[in-house]
């Protein structure tokens, strides 16, 4: 009985189909205009931004207290006034100049540290120890000390910026170097590259996804630290950055301008993240298939 049933189960009929493409409907067609527009991340994000702006506007109107929460419209007009008077532009430029100084010096130091760490074992130990000590330490906590060492001026801010950038970039670059595939290393050695050629043409591109992450984190840390430092610190020699701009207008109870200052900080963040780093990513790691 059981034999017969298992035999029947095995003796299944064979199936042959004639495959034809008619009646399937669409095999391949170009996407419609709407589908294409929706496909752009920038469009979707812009839509979200518009929604957020609308929500802001409605909430602020409902609240009706511009000292606590000015409307989006007021903020934009304060932003336009600030730009027109040149005050906001000057403050932003002041901040960016400082930021770039700190960022670039931080990157150079990070490169030096990482090079030392890649070349020697003691260098790697040193870098790992220092990053585990200093990376968790908020840069702003060093500001009082920096003010004693470097005085009430830009050098103090640059110092804390370097601290903000250096460790995260060095940590990520070092981790990236160590994660470079052994096969690529052997391929590089096989070509008889010089030491520097090996680092520049194999290790750096191979570790680029990590390096890019480090650059982004370093940038964000630096930007935050800068604004915070300026808030604590104020201006030097009558000229101040965005943090100072925010602080000053708070003292004058010009809250829309405070919001305009914050908005400027946000806009810079968005532009750098979504334009500069995005383009860098697209032309490198995405093109190489190292990131999807």
């Amino acid at each position: 009985m059981s034999d017969a049933s298992s035999g029947a189960a095995l003796a299944r009929p064979e199936i042959y189909n004639t495959v034809s493409t008619s009646g399937i409907g669409v095999v391949q067609r170009p996407l419609g205009l709407w589908e294409r527009i929706i496909g752009y991340g920038a469009v979707r994000k812009a839509f979200l931004l518009v929604l957020i702006a609308l929500a802001w506007e409605f909430y602020a109107r409902w609240l009706g207290n511009s000292l606590i929460f000015p409307t989006f419209g007021d903020t934009v007009s304060a932003l336009v006034t600030g730009i027109a008077s040149g005050e906001l532009v000057r403050s932003a430029w002041f901040s960016i100049k400082l930021l770039l100084q700190g960022y670039v010096i931080g990157l150079v130091l990070a490169a030096a540290f990482t090079a030392f760490a890649s070349a020697t074992r003691i260098g790697a130990d040193l870098l790992e120890t220092l990053t585990s000590m200093f990376n968790p330490l908020p840069s702003i906590a060093l500001l009082p000390l920096a003010m004693i060492w470097f005085g009430l001026g830009n050098p103090s801010i640059v110092f804390v910026l370097i601290h903000a950038v250096l460790w995260s970039v060095a940590l990520n670059t070092h981790a990236g170097f160590r994660a470079v595939s052994p096969t690529w290393r052997m391929v590089g050695q096989n070509y008889g590259l010089s030491k520097i050629g090996y680092v520049v043409r194999i290790l750096i591109p191979g570790a680029f996804p990590s390096i890019l992450t480090g650059l982004k984190i370093g940038w964000a840390f630096a930007w935050r630290t800068l604004i915070a430092a300026e808030l604590v610190f104020g201006a030097s020699g009558g000229d101040g950055g965005l943090g100072w701009y925010i602080f000053q207008h708070k003292n004058q109870l010009d809250i829309p301008s405070v919001f305009a200052g914050l908005l400027t900080v946000i806009i810079f963040g968005l532009v750098v993240e979504n334009v500069v780093f995005r383009l860098l990513e697209r032309s490198t790691v995405q093109r190489w298939g190292m990131q999807t």
Binding site: S181, T183, W184, M186, V187, N190, I202, P205, G206, F208, T284, W288, G289, M290
Partner: peptide, 12 residues
């Protein structure tokens, strides 16, 4: 050397 691994080409 030609390796077994597919990642022996430099992706960049």
């Amino acid at each position: 050397l030609v390796f077994q691994e597919f990642d022996q080409l430099l992706p960049w």
